[in-house]
Design a binder for these strands. Sequence first.
DNA 1: TAAAAGTGCTTTGTTTTTCAAAGTTAAATA
DNA 2: TATTTAACTTTGAAAAACAAAGCACTTTTA
Lengths: 98, 98
Amino acid sequence: MKNPIADLNKIFDSRIRLGVMSILVVNDEIGFNDLKQMLELTDGNLASHLNTLEQAEFIKVHKGFIGRKTSTTYSITALGKQAFKAHLDALEKMIKKL
Amino acid sequence: MKNPIADLNKIFDSRIRLGVMSILVVNDEIGFNDLKQMLELTDGNLASHLNTLEQAEFIKVHKGFIGRKTSTTYSITALGKQAFKAHLDALEKMIKKL
DNA sequence: TAAAAGTGCTTTGTTTTTCAAAGTTAAATA
DNA sequence: TATTTAACTTTGAAAAACAAAGCACTTTTA
């Protein structure tokens, strides 16, 4: 029998990064504070998970302004979409035996 | 919007415990060494994750013999089945928006 | 029958990950 | 001018993951 967990992506072991990705799949662009509120996280904690996802090139950061106020938004990359999908496929395969 | 990750069970954040449960859902009983081989783990690592699942009463241990050789097997409990299902439901709800 | 090997752990110690709290910079508002 | 907000970074502590070694017991092999 094949190792059922081998195809899971380590980056998505974290519930928070999983949550971020699931939000980004359905929202083209989302702000730091929106994510923070949705996932109920502290600034530092969210920032570090976003950083991990950015390092992996699964998300992209957009620094801009709303009026003259800074605003940081995030979006998923093609690579991110692909990796997330692969992870979900692996998950599904694991449990599809139900 | 509701926090999408709030209903995920912390115990199943671990890929290994997730793997164990997914195996136990489809196998009434499985041995220590079988699990070890399937998931490609060291003894200590597997034992400690099994211990976590046992503490949570998600799995049950059976110590017995095959012939005169000792054999330890594991099975899922009703509570474990329920918790695992709830976790999968929560996961599905997160990503069903696809 | 003595040595080797297997089962199923526990213990130890290191590495990795997670997280909160506090500090920071710059702009906005009161 | 003082305070607040945004979006971090840094620091440090706690938790989790993991490998390796040790162990008690039994069985198999030489």
